Simulated scan of single mutants.
Amino acid sequence: MAKMLMDEPTIRVEVAYARAHEQKIIALKVKEGTTVLDAAKESGIVDYFPEIVMDDAKLGIFGKAVLKPGDQVLREGERVEIYRPLIADPKEVRKRRAEQMKQKKSGQGNE
């Protein structure tokens, strides 16, 4: 593979993944025209985080989701991010938090 990269133009990109208390960013050179999905696979990040199922993973570039990671071509300096599945529905979490704040406020007025 090193020979192939020497003959073809390359770009530098990063691939990032984070657990709650652990994260890793892998810098790598890939050939021009490499897709988001291909770069994520080439990075070897699954060796560090075996729970990643690359073909099912949600991927993005700098915090913006990519709808077709197998089609989206990367540019120099971009960072591919691999997103973990959500544990809780964000809408439900906000709703519960709002209810708790409402109860706190109504409880303070009774003292």
Rank of each mutant, 00 (worst) to 15 (best):
Gln23Val: 08
Val53Pro: 00
Glu22Leu: 07
Lys24Ala: 03
Gly70Phe: 09
His21Ala: 07
Val13Tyr: 04
Lys41Trp: 05
Ala27His: 10
Ala88Tyr: 06
Gly33Asp: 10
Ile87Met: 06
Thr34Pro: 01
Asn110His: 07
Arg19Ser: 12
Lys29Pro: 00
Glu76Lys: 11
Asp38Tyr: 11
Ala16Ile: 12
Ile52Trp: 04
Glu51Leu: 05
Val46Gln: 12
Ile82Val: 14
Arg84Gly: 02
Glu111Leu: 09
Glu92Cys: 07
Arg84Trp: 02
Glu51Gly: 04
Met54Arg: 13
Glu76Ala: 07
Gly77Gln: 13
Pro69Trp: 06
Val15Gly: 00
Glu32Phe: 03
Lys3Glu: 13
Glu22Ser: 10
Val13Lys: 04
Gly109Lys: 14
Asp38Pro: 05
Asp56Asn: 12
Gly63Glu: 09
Ile26Val: 13
Pro85Gly: 14
Glu111Trp: 04
Gly60Ser: 06
Lys41Phe: 01
Ala57Phe: 04
Glu14Ser: 08
Ile26His: 02
Glu81Trp: 06
Ala39Ile: 15
Asn110Pro: 00
Arg94Gln: 13
Tyr83Ile: 15
Arg79His: 08
Met101Thr: 14
Glu14Tyr: 09
Met4Gln: 12
Glu99His: 10
Gln23Trp: 11
Val30Thr: 12
Glu78His: 09
Phe49Arg: 10
Gly44Glu: 05
Gly44Pro: 02
Pro90Trp: 10
Asp56Phe: 02
Gln108Glu: 10
Glu42Ile: 06
Ala65Ser: 10
Gly109Glu: 12
Ala65Glu: 10
Ile45Gln: 04
Ser106Pro: 00
Lys102Glu: 06
Gln100Arg: 09
Lys41Asn: 07
Met54Phe: 07
Gly77Leu: 07
Gly77Asn: 15
Arg79Asp: 04
Arg94Ser: 08
Gln108Pro: 00
Asp7Pro: 01
Arg79Lys: 14
Ile26Asn: 00
